[in-house]
Design a binder for these strands. Sequence first.
RNA 1: GCGGGCGUAGCUCAAUGGUAGAGCGUCAGCCUUCCAAGCUGAAUGUUGACGGUUCGAGUCCGUUCGCCCGCUCCA
Length: 525
Amino acid sequence: MSEASSNNANKSMDDIMALCKRRGFIYQASEIYGGINGFWDYGPLGAQLKKNLRDAWWQDVVMNPCVGRPGPDGEPVEIVPVDTCIIQNPKVWEASGHVGGFNDPMIDCRESKARYRADHVRAISGKGKRNEAPIFAFLTDTPSETKQRKAAAKKFGNEIEEFDLLELGTDFANVLGPDADTLGTLTEPRAFNLMFKTFVGATSAQTDENAAYLRPETAQGIFINFKNVVDTTRVSVPFGIAQTGKAFRNEVTPRNFTFRSREFEQMEIEFFCHADDAKTWFTFWRDWRYQWWQEIGLAGDNLILRNHDSDELAHYAKEGEGTSDIEYRFPFTAPGFGELEGIAHRGNFDLTQHEEHSKKKMQYFDTTRGELAPNGQPKGEWYTPHCIEPSAGLDRGVLAIICEAYTPDESRASKVYMKFHPRVAPIKAAVFPLVNKDGMPEKAAELHQELVKKFGHLGAIETDAKQSIGKRYARMDEAGCPICFTIDGDTLTDGTITVRDRDTAEQKRIPMAQASAYLAEVLGM
RNA sequence: GCGGGCGUAGCUCAAUGGUAGAGCGUCAGCCUUCCAAGCUGAAUGUUGACGGUUCGAGUCCGUUCGCCCGCUCCA
């Protein structure tokens, strides 16, 4: 357990947010106009950090799936990428269940602060007295039902009638809320539209006919291209399709810095396999994804793997075998955890839905299955593949990495340093002349150019000749730069430089000619 | 959506209803041979926004936007 991971509950989110602002990791979106609730912008260091995490995922998922670890079938894991549109045909969201399932009107109770799905609330009035107080509202199978039935019986005896609350319309002045003690505390029903709506066509009217939605998840772009990928590439089940991209949800309550944002980026894999193999693939992905987050720097006990209870499964996962979350103990969730990535067994829910709604065949012909023909070859089998979905939040990953890296240290000049794993660190190295004269700046520029050329595609290589060396080290500590190379007087005579380690502040001398190899090793190359 | 707290320079914070300040950071110059050293100087604010009370509002009142905490919600 690292020092950083053991005390997240003691890390101040205010301090972390201040550092994010001060050093240019994350800014409030539209700040000069007073911000906009639920949106955040990344500054120079944050944008690079986010790109590094996205690149690491892409490399380890798409380019070299599971870093070469074979799947449960002993074969290399096969993954191909796609990049699909944020705006899809609206029918996609009908098929996926996002339109029908999440437009439900909700009712709030001003007294009890409870919130109810309007269509779930039942009501009891006196017989023929629907327009008179009191009317008793309740939720079936909750304590409120018992309580309200008792109250209604006391008031009306057997002369009652029972109906859906919504039959009253939108005015509930005569209604006693399920958990209320006074009449008329229920608000009128309000729709919760979790999807952002927009309109397609520059000259078209903004009517429902032209309505479209910003995607609430990248996953559907994969499912609706499943057949395209199967038909046009040489993949065969089992295989996965991966995608990163923005998604949008009109969250009821954006909260906790970037953790719950209305615009966010996902990194998703939809891995298709035969139903018989789904369970083993689920376990495989769950375990590897957990390990991946550990290897990217969330190595301590702040990261856990949690299997969902059956009663909290999402609509799509009920068909499958379950869901596991990889969760991180953020300072604002401690001692609890917040989700970084969910690994869901979606069954064949999505492909089946799209097959029904689009009338296009989504089944897959597997030539390795089926009974054997006389010649000993399998006859093949048609089936709708099941799907394992490791779905990660990129912004949440960045936030977790920032929280994990944040390390207060009163003993050093910066008082805090960012202990980024070298692979995600936005600044990979810095080159300093110890003093800004005597040929040192020239040497520094030389080494800087060399390192930029070799490592610049991975992140920033900085150089700085201003002010004292301690100040420059401190600045790099706060930015999370893993190592600094310093040119001094000896460099000019014997060709050696000092390497300064961020985490230990220790220094050692190496030949300048080996700086590049040294950095490569730090970066795990 | 409810309740509570908050909003002053890039950051952290001062300022009795009476001229908006400090520290740090940033920038410039000098200096400087390993950890924010030293010296000199500079820039930076419609006090979140709008309205009101007042001779006068950072301060009081209203509205609004945003952030934090709790509840709620969370595909």
